[in-house]
C-alpha cells in the first residue's frame, strides 16, 4: 500500500491507500493497522481503499488536546475533505466501528454503505454490568481467549519482534486506554444519535467474539434503522483476521448489492 502523511489540526495522520475506484474508508481496530493483513487484498478490488491510523496509533501523531473518540471522528471528517472525498463507503472494526458511528451521526449524507465490524461505542445494559468486558483488568493471559476463536494462531513472540514493532504495539494499547477508559468503551450520547444513520448498514460479528456479544450487537443494530446483522463462524472479535475470506465475502456482497 502507498503510505502518506497529512497534518490535521497540528496532528500528523498516517494514511495507507491502495487501488482505484469508488472510495472505501477503513477504520482499524484497537490493535492498530497492518498494511500486509490478508483481508485487505480481498476487499480492495475495484475500490480506492483508504486506511488512516488513528491519532496515537501506528505512525500517526497524538496531540495533547485529543482524548475522545469524538475527537478522532472530527479529524477524519477533515481528512475526507483534504483527500477530496465528498462521499464514501465506510468500514470500521471495534473502536474503528465506534469512530465510524460517530462520523456517520454527524454527516450521514457523506457516507454510502456502512459496515460495522464488532463495533463498541454504546452502553445498553444495566449499570452494574459492563457491556464490554474490562480487558484492562483481566489477567493478560485471558484476553486472547475472549478475542479469538482460536487464540493459538495469534500468539506473539516478543523476542522475535523488532523494538519498533514492540513500541508501536505498546503505544497502540496506551492510546486505546486514553480513548476508551471512561466512560468505558462508550459515549453515553451516541446511542441517542444513531437514529440519524439511515444509510444501508451491515453489522458483522464473529460467532466466538467474547468482547462484543450477540445481544450487544442486536441492541446496537436495533438503534440503526434498517440495519442487519451477519455472523461469521469460527471467528472472534477480529473476523477480518481470523476468517479473511468469509469477512471479505460478506463485505463485498454487501457493497455490491
Amino acid at each position: 500500500m502507498k503510505r502518506s502523511e497529512i497534518t490535521i489540526a497540528g496532528c500528523p495522520i498516517e494514511v495507507h491507500e491502495a487501488g482505484e475506484g469508488a472510495p472505501l474508508l477503513f477504520l482499524h481496530p484497537g490493535g492498530g493497522f497492518k498494511a500486509d493483513d490478508a483481508y485487505l487484498g480481498l476487499i480492495v478490488k475495484g475500490r480506492r481503499l483508504i486506511c488512516p491510523s488513528h491519532p496515537g496509533f501506528g505512525g500517526s501523531g497524538l496531540s495533547d488536546w485529543m482524548d475522545s473518540v469524538d475527537d478522532i471522528a472530527h479529524i477524519y471528517l477533515e481528512l475526507m475533505d483534504r483527500l477530496g472525498i465528498a462521499k464514501t463507503d465506510l468500514i470500521g472494526c471495534s473502536i474503528g466501528g465506534w469512530i465510524a458511528a460517530e462520523m456517520a451521526t454527524k454527516t450521514p449524507e457523506r457516507f454510502g454503505k456502512i459496515t460495522f465490524v464488532a463495533p463498541v461505542g454504546i452502553k445498553t445494559g444495566p449499570a452494574d454490568q459492563l457491556d464490554i468486558p474490562d480487558i484492562f483488568v483481566m489477567p493478560p493471559a485471558e484476553v486472547p481467549k475472549i478475542m479469538f476463536h482460536d487464540p493459538s494462531k495469534f500468539v506473539s513472540d516478543f523476542s522475535k519482534m523488532p523494538d519498533e514493532a514492540l513500541a508501536t504495539m505498546v503505544r497502540n494499547r496506551e492510546s486505546l486506554a486514553l480513548f476508551v477508559w471512561e466512560p468505558y468503551m462508550h459515549n453515553p450520547k451516541l446511542k441517542h444519535r444513531l437514529q440519524r444513520i439511515t444509510n444501508p448498514v451491515l453489522f458483522l460479528r464473529g460467532a466466538s467474539d467474547g468482547l462484543v456479544s450477540a445481544n450487544y450487537l442486536a441492541a446496537y443494530s436495533a438503534l440503526v434503522g434498517g440495519s442487519r446483522i451477519e455472523t461469521i463462524p469460527e471467528a472472534g472479535h477480529a473476523p477480518q483476521l481470523e476468517q479473511p475470506q468469509a469477512f471479505a465475502d460478506a463485505v463485498n456482497a454487501f457493497l455490491a448489492a
Binding site: 484492562f136 483488568v137 489477567p139 505498546v170 496506551e174 486506554a177 486514553l178
Partner: peptide, 14 residues
C-alpha cells in the same frame, strides 16, 4: 496481579 501493576500508559513506551 500483573494487570494492576502495569496499566497502559503508566510507564513510558520504552
Amino acid at each position: 496481579a500483573p494487570q494492576y501493576a502495569n496499566p497502559p500508559g503508566y510507564v513510558p513506551v520504552e
